[in-house]
Design a protein around this nucleic acid. Sequence first.
DNA 1: TTCCGTTGCTACAATTATCGTAGCAATACG
DNA 2: CGTATTGCTACGATAATTGTAGCAACGGAA
Lengths: 107, 107
Amino acid sequence: MAKQPASERRVRGSRTGRPIMALLDLLGRRWSLRILWELRGEPLTSRALRSACDEASPTVLQARLTELRAAGFVELGEGGGYALTPHGRELCETFMPLHRFAERWKR
Amino acid sequence: MAKQPASERRVRGSRTGRPIMALLDLLGRRWSLRILWELRGEPLTSRALRSACDEASPTVLQARLTELRAAGFVELGEGGGYALTPHGRELCETFMPLHRFAERWKR
DNA sequence: TTCCGTTGCTACAATTATCGTAGCAATACG
DNA sequence: CGTATTGCTACGATAATTGTAGCAACGGAA
């Protein structure tokens, strides 16, 4: 990944300036949705989060966490451990109905 | 992409058998969310969809459309043009509140 | 028929993103 | 001091995505 701060990084799909595009792009990256989902309950340490995310490689997880932190959805607590910010919690609850949908959708 | 039917493909994150994981994984691939979003209104031809998706490469779009069709969210009309299935429309409306959230979230 | 224009879709090489493993510096506790 | 955490990074290998070009099939007009 390009060594470039997330804050300066041009978000794919945001060229139109529409926030929904930037959001869909951010959530469309690997493990983004999953991370938010796994943090919906209690805060998790980086390693606990990794275990929850099916032992995904720490490289991507750190990249996603950096992006999600820059977006203001996730924060790193003082005593360690990642947690959702109020914004992140709001976002997470927005697509929480996906759970019920998924249960009905499973073939 | 591996030349392997989507139906036989092991969905990432579905190793636990939980449908939500398979869904989060499918939606977490590039352009998946965007495609569903752009199809929320009227059906679009493959090229119209490509234009709506910021001229994304047809390779990925076709891959995503194949997956979304296999998942039962998108269908290809007889006279051409992609549209949401009832399941797809239901899914799309599930995360439709993201629009309002994104408007509030934009800094 | 022939000529356009459109449809869905694919080939192919180049570029990115992700994976998997290993390990670092900092901190805390005994 | 050792030991075990924490968040985080290096780096080669692999997979996904991009960008450009183009194909075959179909339809309408000339």
